[in-house]
Write a protein that binds this DNA or RNA. Structure first.
Lengths: 332, 332
DNA sequence: CTGAAAGCGCTTACAG
DNA sequence: CTGAAAGCGCTTACAG
């Protein structure tokens, strides 16, 4: 019966047909437990994230789930809830549930080594190890090139985690594509401040008054914060200042003005990550061969999405009015 | 050995200790496959969503994962990718992977019946069946009451899916808590229009010019769209018009002004959903007893989060300037 | 070409 | 109180 259903063994077509027909009629579904016990494979992969509440999580989870499903695997989620110490616990939980392999989106300090099953890491290319990633530097260069093409020569870069490989790659890329003579300022916003939001205003209007014509944020959330703060101060985007983001979060096209941003090819990244794990499981690759040689480029290009939040710097005149205080006093 | 480790059978303390010690030393982890085959339980639950890219997904997934982990279960994700037809396929995939039970966030048309394992549905209380949900109506009433308390008597309600139980509950609640004499307009934005974003402006500035003093959106994304559109038109929030949202998405506290919104108690909802499934699995409840009698209230209260995007209507004077066209012409 | 048997690792009655 | 055995459902050598 097993051979007939799987088509593996040598079973006459007539018999195979009868078996399939009967299986259909009885709505037979093979027991995953029996199969797992016999084959030593659960058919389930784990997806470990530092923090599910990260706004990028939906893109990642959706792509991984789709790629895994295409390969016949299920996806078990593990969440470290923003706590580095929990990351190991989350991984162990997945291992206890019998995952065949793991896709891990690490935070600094995540211990990955020592696992006895294949792992693919999704992070920045600057991260050493078995990694597949969007080419954040190249994505940054797209932003830099876009702004340069619009004539911007005084750019404020907005980041919030100076220790993040991803953010540093993005910023490096942005700088690399702006003209040599361009003036580039960098403003780091404390992570907890960004998280707790309401936080102090970033003083962006003053920067614009001082000559900044474009603000390049390393994330859409940061760009949104900048946009609303500038709006609130009475400045107009992109007329008074251009803004760009990163990530192409779902709302980035719905706001006014729609946000110019960078989209990563998450389906492709997921496909590579899953393929590399499956290759090891199928014995087609060695566990420490790494993602790259097993499947293909481990650095996936990003894509520029141009929307209305960025415009030419050339036609712009410096603001006629000085920035308007947040309380609205002095508005006409 | 099994008895010693689980502490179930009758094993002398001395022997049990020796066994545990040896297990520790060998880093023994029980095979989930062996256990699953013997017990008929995989220890894994499925989480089925109509669309992972829904911005509420992180909140839901995080809460479900945490509640399941607390109960010793893993969570397998299933995504219908926004396609009703795929919902059944996603459920079947999870069943093939051997989940013991399912948490389902349904879309209209989802066929749930006919499953041979416990299911908890997370939706609106208006949905019939084995449901646990936030009390969206009560949440709406919190918004209505808040706006009423601020003196608003001319409110524009923003929705995007007239057929959604959740949205209708929210809107019903909002209306119910506004004073009888209040003027309430409702504007439905086509879902695809909301999705594809950039779409036509909603004409919100005109509504404000016509007397609307508060805009109550059924979601934070819609509120964000309204906020940026009004900002872009040169209006100020909350000085010229108050805005409220729904969901308390992660960025809602980071924008300017921070968004007044409604937060659902997702951890509590997840806990109830998981507990109801586990109760059935443990034989402590009947499969068709439903979520309610098994565990507790299936309607979980929501919470109002007051932030700067909403202010008193009373101190407000009608706009001195007529709405400014999007191109910025005519600005001082 | 087909059928019967072994064994994956566990848990739980059951025998001693 | 402890040890030996059965059996969950599958797949894959192996015997016929």
């Amino acid at each position: 019966v097993s051979n007939a259903l799987s088509g593996k063994g040598r079973v006459s077509e007539a018999l195979a047909f009868k078996v399939r027909e009967a299986a259909e009629r009885l709505a037979y579904v093979p027991s995953p437990a029996g199969r797992a016990l016999r084959t030593g494979r659960s058919g389930v992969l784990g997806l470990v994230l530092p923090d599910i509440s990260n706004p990028l999580f939906p893109q990642i989870a959706q792509a991984i789930e789709a790629a895994a499903a295409d390969a016949g695997y299920g996806v078990l989620i593990g969440d470290a809830r923003g706590d580095v110490a929990q990351q190991t616990a989350a991984i162990n939980r997945l291992v206890r549930h019998g995952v065949d392999g793991l896709v891990i989106v690490p935070r600094r300090g995540t211990r990955i080594s020592g696992l006895d099953r294949p792992v693919a890491v999704i992070d920045s290319p600057s991260t050493p190890g078995n990694t597949v990633a969007a080419d954040h530097w190249q994505g940054g260069a797209l932003i830099g090139g876009h702004l340069a093409g619009l004539g911007h020569t005084h750019v404020l870069v907005l980041g919030n985690t100076p220790t993040s490989n991803v953010q540093n790659d993005r910023i490096g890329g942005i700088r690399s594509a702006l003209p040599r003579h361009a003036r580039i300022e960098t403003l780091w916003i404390e992570p907890h401040e960004a998280a707790h939001g309401a936080g102090a205003p970033l003083g962006l209007a003053e920067r614009v008054a001082a000559g900044v014509t474009a603000i390049a944020a390393v994330s859409d959330v940061l760009a949104l914060r900048a946009l609303t703060e500038l709006h609130q101060a009475g400045l107009r985007v992109p007329d008074d200042v251009s803004i760009t983001g990163f990530d192409d979060l779902s709302w980035s096209s719905a706001i006014s003005p729609a946000l110019t941003t960078i989209r990563m090819d998450m389906p492709r990244i997921a496909e590579i990550a899953i393929a590399s794990i499956v290759a090891v499981l199928d014995g087609r690759a060695d566990a420490n061969a790494g993602v790259v040689p097993a499947v293909g480029p481990a650095q996936v290009p990003m894509q520029l999405v141009i929307r209305r939040s960025s415009g030419p710097a050339s036609t712009r005149i410096s603001p006629l009015v000085s920035p308007i205080p947040a309380d609205g006093a002095g508005r006409c």
